[in-house]
Amino acid sequence: MRWWEAGRVLAALASAGGAAVAAASGCGAVDGYDCDEYLACEVINADGSSNGGCEGTCVPTEIYGFRSGVYLVGRKAGLDDPGCADALLRTEGLDLEERKEMSPPPHGDFFVAPGAHPGCAPCACTAPACAFPAGLTVSSGWMCDDSPGVTLTPFDAPAGWDGSCVAPGAVGAEAFGSFRIAPVTARACEVVPSPVPRDGDAHAGGQAVVTCDASGGDKCPAPGHACVFGAAELRPGWRRCLLAEDKDVECPSSDRTAGLHFSEKLTFWKEVDDSRACTPCACTETAPSTCEALVSTFEDGACRDLVAAVVVAGNGGCHDAEPGSALGSLSAAWLVDAPGSCAPSGGELVGELSLSGQVTACCLPEGT
């Protein structure tokens, strides 16, 4: 607890304007007087020590091995975090500009050192497969003639055709002189995409720490001390700290800090360069596919009246129709269905993590 020292207040009032005013007034409630301007108001701690006019905490400003001054330190959750504008309880409920006006000035941002890289997801490949031809191109001429004046009619199988009977349309005898069959295809293996990218994150999920100037003036009775915000004025998660740029620094003993225990040691970094990443996945064929199909064409739409059956491999084929034939359906079956194989590669962790500009913070425990 703190209270106003009434005797000193009355003495100051008497010297400023008379005993009558002094007898009717108290520090902080003086009609017509500004307490900061006219009175030597003294804050007394519960242990009987004096803070002078400082209602926060008096801390030595120069401690060997540390930056001059005391700083508020809080974790910053994202790039748009207001930072120092959220340090004090008294700004709660105000808009951002009002919070900034009533908040301590910012000092700087530092990165929290990232943890271990999460590792690279294993690379995987789809299995290669044999695929039936995409369909036919019907020519009104012989030997798949496609010269000017010849009628070409597409007779396409559906995507992902499994060889079962299909009737893409009907081609009359006047337009059905020959047909070209597309080749069977050996579908290559492909990289299976990883559902969750697992590259490293240099800033530990975007987290950093923000530092603010905690000094509130020289209202402390002892020279060389600064009045800093009290623990009761800070929002949860904020601490009052000393900062040093020496990685081997030890937190100061309480006899160097006016009895205060800056005992919580935290480490931050000015620069984090994280080039760690996973090499891209790839698939390499280790054995080729062998695919060969028998494609049958029919006059009717139900694959009953055969026109021609043609063996097709990787080059496709051309076949003349019987004179007077029509085209109504087609089907296919595998003669050789021997997909090859492939092997995945990649998914290796490369690069490195580099941290520089270490900053050590020695802090009063949160809430003290």
Rank of each mutant, 00 (worst) to 15 (best):
G26P: 01
G28S: 12
G346K: 14
P60A: 05
L39K: 00
S354D: 06
L88M: 02
L353M: 09
T91A: 06
L349V: 13
A182W: 02
I181P: 01
S296P: 03
R2Q: 09
C220A: 05
L266E: 11
D80F: 14
D305K: 09
R75W: 04
A321I: 06
E174C: 04
E190D: 12
D274A: 08
K219D: 09
G259M: 08
A326V: 13
C283G: 09
L136D: 01
A338S: 15
A16Y: 13
V249T: 03
C278F: 06
G216A: 13
T151V: 13
D255T: 11
C120F: 02
R67P: 00
G78P: 03
A22R: 12
G115P: 07
T297D: 05
G141K: 02
D218W: 09
R276I: 07
C362E: 03
V196L: 15
V70A: 12
C130W: 14
R75A: 11
Y33F: 13
G160D: 07
P148V: 12
S50G: 04
L353R: 12
P280I: 06
G18H: 11
G347W: 08
R67Y: 08
V295T: 06
H117S: 14
P183Q: 12
G18P: 07
R2M: 09
E271T: 15
S296T: 15
D47F: 05
P60F: 05
S194G: 10
W269M: 07
V307L: 08
F110T: 00
A287G: 03
C291L: 07
G177P: 04
T137S: 13
A170G: 01
S215F: 02
